[in-house]
Amino acid sequence: MTKRRLGVATSVILLIALFFYLAGYKLDAVSAARANSFLPMGYYFNNDDSIKTIGGVLYSDDKGRVATVISVLLSDQKISFLEIGPDGNRIRKKAELNTPITFSWDKSFPWNDFNAKALNEDGKVLYEYRYAKSNYIRHEDLKWYPI
């Protein structure tokens, strides 16, 4: 009798899991982000942006280790280079379309010191990473803006 109950319970669990999977509920990062109301909808998935920040971290620990990392995804063919970092620690990388481009430093500095710019082949700035120019600052407004 115990084996039969175990078999029935297993079947019920599998059917429930199948139902949720077919209904669009999956255990992945995107589903987790959508399930949390504190993340604005469309913040990381604003598909009409030509250049997106897809991740970043300012890291420090109690042992004195520090790091800054930012990753960007491009879809604008006019962009030839990205330059990010404060004066003296600036990194320039060649643009690659639809491929994450990651910048990292063994120093910690705030986002407003990134001075991030996307440039064309002639060195003209096409985009800059900043908040919208307004009196009201929202987290989702920190992104790449065309110049």
Rank of each mutant, 00 (worst) to 15 (best):
T2W: 15
L6Y: 07
L6N: 09
A9E: 13
A9L: 15
I13M: 08
L14P: 00
L14V: 12
L14E: 02
L15M: 07
I16Q: 00
I16M: 03
A17C: 07
A17H: 01
L18T: 05
L18K: 01
F19I: 05
F20H: 05
G24A: 06
G24M: 07
Y25S: 10
K26G: 09
K26C: 08
K26S: 14
L27F: 14
D28G: 10
D28I: 08
A29F: 04
V30T: 14
R34M: 00
A35W: 06
A35I: 04
N36A: 07
M41W: 12
G42T: 13
G42D: 15
Y43T: 07
N46T: 14
N47I: 12
N47S: 15
N47R: 13
D49I: 05
K52W: 07
K52M: 10
K52A: 03
G55D: 15
G55W: 12
G56E: 04
L58F: 07
Y59N: 14
S60N: 11
S60T: 09
D61L: 11
D61T: 04
K63H: 11
R65N: 14
R65P: 03
R65S: 05
V66F: 02
I70L: 12
V72I: 15
L74D: 02
D76P: 10
K78E: 15
K78F: 10
I79C: 01
F81Q: 09
L82I: 05
G85V: 01
D87Y: 06
G88N: 05
G88K: 03
G88A: 01
N89W: 02
R90N: 03
R92I: 08
K94L: 05
A95G: 03
A95S: 04
L97A: 10
L97M: 15
N98D: 15
T99V: 14
T99S: 11
T99D: 06
I101M: 08
T102R: 08
T102I: 01
F103N: 00
D106F: 07
F109L: 08
P110F: 04
W111Q: 07
N112P: 06
F114E: 00
A116C: 07
A116N: 03
A118R: 07
L119N: 04
N120K: 11
G123F: 01
V125L: 01
Y129L: 07
R130V: 03
R130W: 10
Y131C: 03
A132V: 10
A132M: 13
K133F: 14
I137C: 15
E140K: 04
D141N: 09
D141M: 06
D141A: 02
W144G: 00
P146A: 15
